[in-house]
Protein backbone atom coordinates (compact mmCIF):
# COMPACT_ATOMS: atom_id res chain seq x y z
CA UNK A 1 0.00 0.00 0.00
CA UNK A 2 2.85 2.37 0.94
CA UNK A 3 4.67 1.70 -2.33
CA UNK A 4 1.48 2.32 -4.25
CA UNK A 5 0.94 5.63 -2.46
CA UNK A 6 4.57 6.66 -3.09
CA UNK A 7 4.26 5.96 -6.82
CA UNK A 8 1.08 7.99 -6.98
CA UNK A 9 2.75 10.89 -5.15
CA UNK A 10 5.66 11.02 -7.63
CA UNK A 11 3.18 10.82 -10.49
CA UNK A 12 1.26 13.69 -8.91
CA UNK A 13 4.32 15.94 -8.81
CA UNK A 14 5.20 15.13 -12.45
CA UNK A 15 1.66 15.83 -13.60
CA UNK A 16 1.63 19.09 -11.64
CA UNK A 17 4.89 20.23 -13.22
CA UNK A 18 3.72 19.32 -16.73
CA UNK A 19 0.48 21.20 -16.20
CA UNK A 20 2.37 24.18 -14.77
CA UNK A 21 4.67 24.31 -17.80
CA UNK A 22 1.70 24.21 -20.16
CA UNK A 23 0.00 26.94 -18.13
CA UNK A 24 3.16 29.03 -18.16
CA UNK A 25 3.50 28.79 -21.95
CA UNK A 26 -0.17 29.57 -22.56
CA UNK A 27 -0.18 32.49 -20.15
CA UNK A 28 3.03 33.92 -21.59
CA UNK A 29 1.63 33.80 -25.10
CA UNK A 30 -1.88 34.97 -24.28
CA UNK A 31 -1.21 37.78 -21.84
CA UNK A 32 1.06 40.69 -21.25
CA UNK A 33 1.53 40.86 -17.48
CA UNK A 34 3.20 44.26 -17.68
CA UNK A 35 0.24 45.80 -19.54
CA UNK A 36 -2.22 44.11 -17.23
CA UNK A 37 -0.46 45.40 -14.12
CA UNK A 38 -0.09 48.90 -15.54
CA UNK A 39 -3.81 49.18 -16.29
CA UNK A 40 -5.84 50.18 -19.31
CA UNK A 41 -4.68 53.76 -19.80
CA UNK A 42 -1.04 53.35 -18.85
CA UNK A 43 1.63 55.06 -20.92
CA UNK A 44 3.92 52.74 -22.92
CA UNK A 45 6.90 53.89 -20.79
CA UNK A 46 5.17 52.64 -17.65
CA UNK A 47 4.43 49.27 -19.26
CA UNK A 48 8.01 48.92 -20.49
CA UNK A 49 9.35 49.81 -17.06
CA UNK A 50 7.22 47.12 -15.41
CA UNK A 51 8.32 44.58 -18.04
CA UNK A 52 11.95 45.24 -17.22
CA UNK A 53 11.36 45.19 -13.48
CA UNK A 54 9.74 41.78 -13.62
CA UNK A 55 12.30 40.27 -15.97
CA UNK A 56 9.61 39.63 -18.58
CA UNK A 57 11.99 40.66 -21.35
CA UNK A 58 14.02 37.47 -20.77
CA UNK A 59 13.49 34.33 -22.93
CA UNK A 60 10.50 32.22 -21.88
CA UNK A 61 12.53 29.14 -21.01
CA UNK A 62 14.86 31.21 -18.86
CA UNK A 63 11.86 32.64 -17.00
CA UNK A 64 10.42 29.16 -16.42
CA UNK A 65 13.86 27.89 -15.36
CA UNK A 66 14.15 30.66 -12.75
CA UNK A 67 10.74 29.77 -11.37
CA UNK A 68 11.55 26.05 -11.22
CA UNK A 69 14.86 26.72 -9.55
CA UNK A 70 13.24 28.99 -6.98
CA UNK A 71 10.51 26.54 -5.97
CA UNK A 72 13.06 23.78 -5.65
CA UNK A 73 14.59 25.99 -2.93
CA UNK A 74 11.23 26.53 -1.27
CA UNK A 75 10.72 30.02 -2.68
CA UNK A 76 7.27 30.16 -4.23
CA UNK A 77 7.97 33.61 -5.60
CA UNK A 78 6.37 37.01 -5.23
CA UNK A 79 3.17 38.01 -6.95
CA UNK A 80 3.61 40.59 -9.71
CA UNK A 81 0.22 42.00 -8.98
CA UNK A 82 -0.23 41.84 -5.23
CA UNK A 83 3.42 42.47 -4.40
CA UNK A 84 3.31 39.83 -1.68
CA UNK A 85 4.80 36.33 -1.37
CA UNK A 86 2.68 33.82 -3.29
CA UNK A 87 2.74 31.44 -0.32
CA UNK A 88 1.18 34.12 1.92
CA UNK A 89 -1.49 34.89 -0.66
CA UNK A 90 -2.44 31.24 -1.10
CA UNK A 91 -2.63 30.71 2.64
CA UNK A 92 -4.80 33.83 2.93
CA UNK A 93 -7.30 32.61 0.34
CA UNK A 94 -7.28 28.90 1.16
CA UNK A 95 -9.52 28.97 4.28
CA UNK A 96 -12.42 30.54 2.37
CA UNK A 97 -12.29 27.95 -0.40
CA UNK A 98 -11.75 25.10 2.04
CA UNK A 99 -14.72 26.14 4.17
CA UNK A 100 -16.92 26.70 1.14
CA UNK A 101 -15.93 23.39 -0.46
CA UNK A 102 -16.63 21.43 2.72
CA UNK A 103 -19.90 23.27 3.33
CA UNK A 104 -21.02 22.70 -0.26
CA UNK A 105 -20.10 19.02 -0.08
CA UNK A 106 -22.04 18.76 3.18
CA UNK A 107 -25.08 20.37 1.53
CA UNK A 108 -24.78 17.99 -1.42
CA UNK A 109 -24.52 14.97 0.87
CA UNK A 110 -27.43 15.79 3.15
CA UNK A 111 -29.67 16.34 0.14
CA UNK A 112 -28.44 13.72 -2.30
CA UNK A 113 -27.91 10.65 -0.13
CA UNK A 114 -31.30 10.62 1.64
CA UNK A 115 -33.05 11.51 -1.61
CA UNK A 116 -31.19 8.85 -3.60
CA UNK A 117 -31.83 6.25 -0.91
CA UNK A 118 -35.55 6.98 -0.67
CA UNK A 119 -35.81 7.00 -4.46
CA UNK A 120 -34.19 3.57 -4.53
CA UNK A 121 -36.39 2.20 -1.76
CA UNK A 122 -39.50 3.28 -3.69
CA UNK A 123 -38.48 2.93 -7.34
CA UNK A 124 -40.76 4.46 -9.97
CA UNK A 125 -42.86 6.08 -7.25
CA UNK A 126 -43.78 9.76 -7.03
CA UNK A 127 -40.84 10.44 -4.77
CA UNK A 128 -38.50 8.74 -7.24
CA UNK A 129 -39.85 10.96 -10.02
CA UNK A 130 -39.50 13.99 -7.79
CA UNK A 131 -35.88 13.09 -7.04
CA UNK A 132 -35.16 12.61 -10.72
CA UNK A 133 -36.77 15.95 -11.59
CA UNK A 134 -34.76 17.65 -8.88
CA UNK A 135 -31.55 16.09 -10.15
CA UNK A 136 -32.20 17.15 -13.74
CA UNK A 137 -33.20 20.65 -12.65
CA UNK A 138 -30.12 21.08 -10.45
CA UNK A 139 -27.89 19.95 -13.30
CA UNK A 140 -29.57 22.23 -15.81
CA UNK A 141 -29.64 25.35 -13.66
CA UNK A 142 -26.79 27.75 -14.37
CA UNK A 143 -24.80 28.50 -11.23
CA UNK A 144 -24.94 32.27 -11.64
CA UNK A 145 -28.72 32.21 -12.11
CA UNK A 146 -29.31 30.12 -9.02
CA UNK A 147 -26.95 32.39 -7.08
CA UNK A 148 -28.78 35.53 -8.17
CA UNK A 149 -32.19 34.02 -7.42
CA UNK A 150 -31.09 33.06 -3.92
CA UNK A 151 -29.63 36.54 -3.41
CA UNK A 152 -32.90 38.16 -4.46
CA UNK A 153 -35.07 35.79 -2.43
CA UNK A 154 -33.04 35.24 0.71
CA UNK A 155 -30.85 38.33 0.65
CA UNK A 156 -33.07 41.14 -0.58
CA UNK A 157 -36.79 40.26 -0.35
CA UNK A 158 -36.49 38.16 2.80
CA UNK A 159 -33.12 39.23 4.14
CA UNK A 160 -32.22 36.09 6.03
CA UNK A 161 -28.66 35.69 4.84
CA UNK A 162 -25.84 38.10 3.96
CA UNK A 163 -25.54 38.72 0.23
CA UNK A 164 -21.81 38.93 -0.17
CA UNK A 165 -18.51 38.61 1.63
CA UNK A 166 -16.97 35.88 3.76
CA UNK A 167 -16.74 37.53 7.15
CA UNK A 168 -19.04 35.17 9.09
CA UNK A 169 -20.32 31.62 8.87
CA UNK A 170 -23.67 32.94 7.66
CA UNK A 171 -21.95 34.27 4.55
CA UNK A 172 -21.28 30.68 3.49
CA UNK A 173 -24.89 29.48 3.54
CA UNK A 174 -26.07 30.73 0.13
CA UNK A 175 -22.81 29.97 -1.71
CA UNK A 176 -22.74 26.48 -0.20
CA UNK A 177 -26.28 25.82 -1.42
CA UNK A 178 -25.37 27.05 -4.91
CA UNK A 179 -22.15 25.11 -5.12
CA UNK A 180 -23.61 22.06 -3.44
CA UNK A 181 -26.63 21.95 -5.76
CA UNK A 182 -24.35 21.23 -8.65
CA UNK A 183 -23.09 18.03 -7.00
CA UNK A 184 -26.49 16.74 -5.95
CA UNK A 185 -27.48 15.00 -9.23
CA UNK A 186 -24.35 12.89 -9.57
CA UNK A 187 -24.31 11.79 -5.93
CA UNK A 188 -28.04 11.18 -5.83
CA UNK A 189 -28.07 9.01 -8.94
CA UNK A 190 -25.11 6.96 -7.79
CA UNK A 191 -26.71 6.47 -4.40
CA UNK A 192 -29.96 5.40 -6.01
CA UNK A 193 -28.27 2.94 -8.35
CA UNK A 194 -26.01 1.66 -5.56
CA UNK A 195 -28.87 1.09 -3.13
CA UNK A 196 -31.05 -0.56 -5.81
CA UNK A 197 -28.18 -2.86 -6.73
CA UNK A 198 -27.41 -3.85 -3.16
CA UNK A 199 -31.06 -4.30 -2.23
CA UNK A 200 -31.37 -6.98 -4.88
CA UNK A 201 -28.34 -8.92 -3.74
CA UNK A 202 -28.38 -12.32 -2.00
CA UNK A 203 -26.83 -11.20 1.26
CA UNK A 204 -29.60 -8.63 1.79
CA UNK A 205 -32.16 -11.37 1.28
CA UNK A 206 -30.26 -13.42 3.86
CA UNK A 207 -30.15 -10.49 6.24
CA UNK A 208 -33.88 -10.01 5.86
CA UNK A 209 -34.44 -13.70 6.46
CA UNK A 210 -32.50 -13.26 9.70
CA UNK A 211 -34.96 -10.56 10.69
CA UNK A 212 -32.93 -7.48 9.84
CA UNK A 213 -35.24 -4.76 8.56
CA UNK A 214 -35.63 -1.04 8.24
CA UNK A 215 -32.97 1.38 9.44
CA UNK A 216 -30.70 -1.31 10.85
CA UNK A 217 -30.64 -3.16 7.53
CA UNK A 218 -30.03 0.06 5.65
CA UNK A 219 -27.22 1.36 7.82
CA UNK A 220 -25.43 -1.92 8.54
CA UNK A 221 -25.73 -3.79 5.28
CA UNK A 222 -26.94 -1.61 2.45
CA UNK A 223 -25.27 1.79 2.71
CA UNK A 224 -21.75 0.57 3.36
CA UNK A 225 -21.69 -1.22 0.02
CA UNK A 226 -23.98 1.10 -1.89
CA UNK A 227 -21.85 4.16 -1.15
CA UNK A 228 -18.59 2.76 -2.51
CA UNK A 229 -18.93 4.47 -5.92
CA UNK A 230 -20.13 7.62 -4.19
CA UNK A 231 -16.81 7.94 -2.37
CA UNK A 232 -14.92 8.20 -5.68
CA UNK A 233 -17.33 10.72 -7.11
CA UNK A 234 -17.23 12.70 -3.88
CA UNK A 235 -13.46 13.00 -4.14
CA UNK A 236 -13.76 14.36 -7.67
CA UNK A 237 -16.51 16.77 -6.63
CA UNK A 238 -14.52 17.99 -3.66
CA UNK A 239 -11.50 18.41 -5.93
CA UNK A 240 -13.54 20.62 -8.22
CA UNK A 241 -14.68 22.72 -5.31
CA UNK A 242 -11.23 23.02 -3.80
CA UNK A 243 -10.02 24.12 -7.22
CA UNK A 244 -12.20 27.08 -6.49
CA UNK A 245 -15.51 28.04 -7.93
CA UNK A 246 -14.90 31.17 -9.92
CA UNK A 247 -18.54 31.97 -10.52
CA UNK A 248 -19.84 31.31 -7.02
CA UNK A 249 -16.97 33.15 -5.37
CA UNK A 250 -17.34 36.08 -7.75
CA UNK A 251 -21.10 36.44 -7.40
CA UNK A 252 -20.92 36.25 -3.61
CA UNK A 253 -17.73 38.35 -3.47
CA UNK A 254 -15.86 35.68 -1.55
CA UNK A 255 -12.13 35.97 -1.43
CA UNK A 256 -11.33 32.36 -2.16
CA UNK A 257 -8.88 30.60 -4.43
CA UNK A 258 -11.26 30.52 -7.41
CA UNK A 259 -11.64 34.26 -7.67
CA UNK A 260 -8.01 34.69 -6.74
CA UNK A 261 -7.03 32.41 -9.64
CA UNK A 262 -9.24 34.39 -12.02
CA UNK A 263 -7.76 37.71 -10.88
CA UNK A 264 -4.27 36.29 -11.29
CA UNK A 265 -4.99 35.01 -14.80
CA UNK A 266 -6.56 38.29 -15.90
CA UNK A 267 -3.69 40.18 -14.31
CA UNK A 268 -1.12 37.97 -16.03
CA UNK A 269 0.32 37.18 -12.60
CA UNK A 270 2.43 34.24 -13.79
CA UNK A 271 4.10 33.25 -10.46
CA UNK A 272 0.73 33.06 -8.72
CA UNK A 273 -1.02 31.20 -11.54
CA UNK A 274 1.88 28.73 -11.68
CA UNK A 275 1.61 27.89 -8.00
CA UNK A 276 -2.18 27.69 -8.15
CA UNK A 277 -2.01 25.28 -11.07
CA UNK A 278 0.43 23.08 -9.16
CA UNK A 279 -1.73 23.29 -6.05
CA UNK A 280 -4.93 22.41 -7.90
CA UNK A 281 -3.29 19.53 -9.73
CA UNK A 282 -1.83 18.15 -6.50
CA UNK A 283 -5.16 18.54 -4.71
CA UNK A 284 -6.99 16.67 -7.41
CA UNK A 285 -4.50 13.86 -7.56
CA UNK A 286 -4.32 13.71 -3.77
CA UNK A 287 -8.07 13.42 -3.45
CA UNK A 288 -8.26 10.71 -6.09
CA UNK A 289 -5.61 8.79 -4.18
CA UNK A 290 -7.54 9.31 -0.97
CA UNK A 291 -10.68 7.98 -2.65
CA UNK A 292 -8.81 4.84 -3.76
CA UNK A 293 -7.52 4.28 -0.27
CA UNK A 294 -10.95 4.84 1.25
CA UNK A 295 -12.51 2.42 -1.19
CA UNK A 296 -9.90 -0.13 -0.28
CA UNK A 297 -10.67 0.42 3.39
CA UNK A 298 -14.42 0.15 2.86
CA UNK A 299 -14.18 -2.90 0.61
CA UNK A 300 -11.44 -5.35 1.62
CA UNK A 301 -11.80 -7.12 -1.76
CA UNK A 302 -10.23 -4.10 -3.45
CA UNK A 303 -7.03 -4.40 -1.40
CA UNK A 304 -6.23 -7.64 -3.16
CA UNK A 305 -6.36 -6.17 -6.63
Amino acid sequence: MLRYAGKRAILAVLVALTVSFAAFLLLSVATDPAAAIAGEGAEPEVIEQIREQLGLNQPLLAQYGHWLSAISHGDLGTSYYWRQPVSTLILDHLPVTLTLALAATFVALIVAIPLGTIAALYPNSTIDRFALTLAVSAQATPTFWLALMLIILLGVIVPIFPISGDATGWNYVLPAIVLGAHSVPAIMRLTRVGVLDVMGSDYIRTARAKGLYGYRLLSRQVMRNALLPVVSVLAVQLGHKLGGSVITESVFAMNGLGRFALQSIVGGDIPTVQMLVVLFALTFIGLTLLADLLNAWLDPRLRLT
Partner: peptide, 13 residues
Amino acid sequence: FRTIPDLSTQQAE
Protein backbone atom coordinates in the same frame (compact mmCIF):
# COMPACT_ATOMS: atom_id res chain seq x y z
CA PHE B 1 -14.11 50.12 -0.06
CA ARG B 2 -15.52 46.66 -0.71
CA THR B 3 -14.58 44.52 -3.69
CA ILE B 4 -17.76 43.02 -5.14
CA PRO B 5 -16.89 41.73 -8.60
CA ASP B 6 -20.42 41.03 -9.77
CA LEU B 7 -22.52 44.02 -10.76
CA SER B 8 -25.79 42.28 -9.85
CA THR B 9 -24.50 41.58 -6.36
CA GLN B 10 -23.46 45.22 -6.02
CA GLN B 11 -27.01 46.24 -6.91
CA ALA B 12 -28.50 43.77 -4.43
CA GLU B 13 -26.25 45.15 -1.68
